[in-house]
Design a protein around this nucleic acid. Structure first.
Lengths: 349, 349
DNA sequence: ATTAAACTATGACATTTATCACATTTAAAA
DNA sequence: TTTTAAATGTGATAAATGTCATAGTTTAAT
């Protein structure tokens, strides 16, 4: 049985959450403020710590800082709870080395799954640290992009985003690269007149944020979660280190970028000369490919998002969807879209 | 005084060309067919060979093949002359190891400059071969993209293209990467209905063809010279070898790709929501930046090419140019366009 | 369960832009 | 230089698409 320390100043939230966690099979310790939390952590060395940020006496950042300074406690997985959704706060937590970051209010299941995956990962990392102490090195043997992803998965920190939350915004500097473990992220740009265009979609197992990988320039686009999404975050500096020791991964990264470039250029061609019908069809197919686990599942995306990928007015998109529906190419079920005739869609116009 | 061997079956062309070359200060040997050419080359070991492709007895490819097989003659720079402009012929020559490839009819000055640069380079390479024989290695010290360009410049073969000639075509496999030493190259895609969109412009000192660098897939776009252009061509396999030994260059290449991607995405945004006026203005500025050595030089590009970059109908572009001219933003001098008010163009709409 | 907010759908209309046809100009070739 | 082909310019027109207004639906929040 794992021991969990919950640091939270709001009594109601603390007791409710503790109960949930106990029911899930954890041995739960609680602390009503940061100072008490640090003391409890040092005395009991829990397997994982869940900690609010806004607290009297000592806030969450302070708790993390103090625990990170001690050899005994620095490896304990640390999950932040916060009502703040501002990106700079999240980044502050990440910079300090938090392992995950949940925004309140959260679902029970989100919390549980975050805790479980962190506990599991921590034990793997303990093994690795042992090996490393024995002189083995784990960064010189990456042979492919997949290895890189595994590396990121093992060495990165998690970040849980709700639908609509931003990973980064156009103009911000970011020092991270991201791997999606669950959900969908869209990258989008906004032009002067406020129109939004989605320039890329990423899904589970995709890497993103590498456009500015080696240069320290600001992001030229924003990245936003289209559904509840879990990311692994790795500092670019660390990644550079890894790349330096692994040519093969460099090549894979170059390929990844090339692919991206090709894809973007194709989108460009279509954007320039494609009719609304064509753009609409292509966009539906693109989403189907990116989002769907099962082939016959209906698409759940707002018309707005679809229009933003297609680069057309929302109303034009809606009209086109209606006519596709009349022609029997798709089925509109409430807000969802079900593809009926893939081939015909692929050969529109 | 350098000795030059000219192999050409057409007597008139041979004698004229020989005279030109003698006046340029070369000691010229001639041969009327491939067989005689090979014999003369072996006996006299000229400093450079200029050879027609279509010849009786033994064609140009055969000559090159035979000379490449001999230790004594394999390092002599070899320039092909050909009436053929088909790309596969050029590639055949390149694959065999020709150092340059001129298509007939050629300008005197083109031929002279091709010869001179090859003779100069050959002496540098002779030095290098000596060093290499002594055990020094020249591929392990590249530190930047600039070094890579220098490497390509030193180790690649030249290719001279006339305005309108293709470097590669959509769908072709290519095993080369290209460095432009003079001129402008456009990369363009064609959609099903035959409309052409220019997706990238490259100028002197730019590297291109790296989109498929590490993967052996066909080109997704065509590349065509917009003016008389000189390229350096390096086989991808050789380049991979180099990249393997030079991390720093990998990083630079990754940056290059990232930049490209950003630029393409910006074009995408504009393509999606920009008005014709905006696209036209942006395109003029883009060309001005890419093509002009001096700031006040007028642009010499066809309306067609401009429209292809902007992704609009040629007539629409022409109309917009007219109105820009009336508004005093540009000056139309015959076919050329002179920018008058850069700032206003940058802030159209 | 009710209400509010957000999203979707549709009509009417204005605007933009492509297309076609043809005149005019420019550059290249004979 | 003259001829010819290619490129540019312009008008008329139709098609495509965006915009605005408004009504109906769905989802989420109280």
């Amino acid at each position: 049985m794992h021991t969990l320390l919950l640091i939270e100043d709001d009594t109601v939230v603390r007791e409710n959450t503790a109960e949930i966690l106990e029911l899930s099979g954890y041995n739960v310790l609680t602390a009503p403020n940061g100072k008490a939390g640090v003391a409890t952590a040092k005395n009991n060395l829990p397997d994982i710590i869940v900690c609010d940020i806004m607290m009297p006496e000592l806030d969450g950042y302070g708790v993390l800082e103090q625990l990170a300074a001690e050899e005994n406690t620095k490896h304990i997985p640390f999950i932040f709870l916060s009502a703040k959704t501002e990106h700079k706060d999240i980044r502050k937590g990440m910079d300090l080395g938090a392992d995950d970051y949940l925004t309140k209010p959260f679902e029970e299941s989100d919390l549980i799954s975050a805790i479980e995956s962190r506990v599991a990962k921590a034990s793997i990392l303990r093994e690795e640290r042992k090996r490393k102490d024995l002189g083995e090195d784990d960064t010189s043997s990456l042979r492919s992009l997949n290895d890189l992803k595994n590396y990121v998965d093992d060495h990165g920190n998690a970040l849980t985003l709700k639908k609509g939350e931003a990973v980064f915004e156009q103009g911000q500097h970011s020092n991270y690269i991201y791997l999606i473990t669950k959900g969908i992220i869209k990258c989008h740009k906004i032009d002067e007149s406020g129109k939004e265009l989605t320039t890329a979609l990423y899904r589970e197992d995709d890497l993103f944020g590498y456009a500015t990988l080696l240069q320290n320039i600001a992001h030229q686009e924003s990245a936003t979660a289209m559904e509840n999404t879990e990311l692994i975050v790795v500092p670019k500096e660390e990644l550079k280190e890894v790349l330096n020791n692994n040519h093969k991964v460099n090549f894979d990264l170059i390929n990844l970028l090339s692919d991206n470039l090709e894809e973007t250029k194709n989108q460009l061609l279509q954007m320039a000369y494609g009719s609304v019908r064509k753009k609409t069809a292509a966009t539906i197919l693109q989403f189907a490919e990116k989002m769907n686990k099962k082939p016959d599942e209906p698409l759940k995306i707002s018309r707005n998002d679809l229009a933003s990928v297609a680069g057309i007015a929302t109303e034009s998109l809606i009209r086109t969807l209606s006519s596709f529906s009349k022609e029997g190419l798709i089925d509109i079920e409430g807000r969802n879209i079900k593809i009926i005739d893939i081939k015909a869609l692929a050969h529109i116009d």
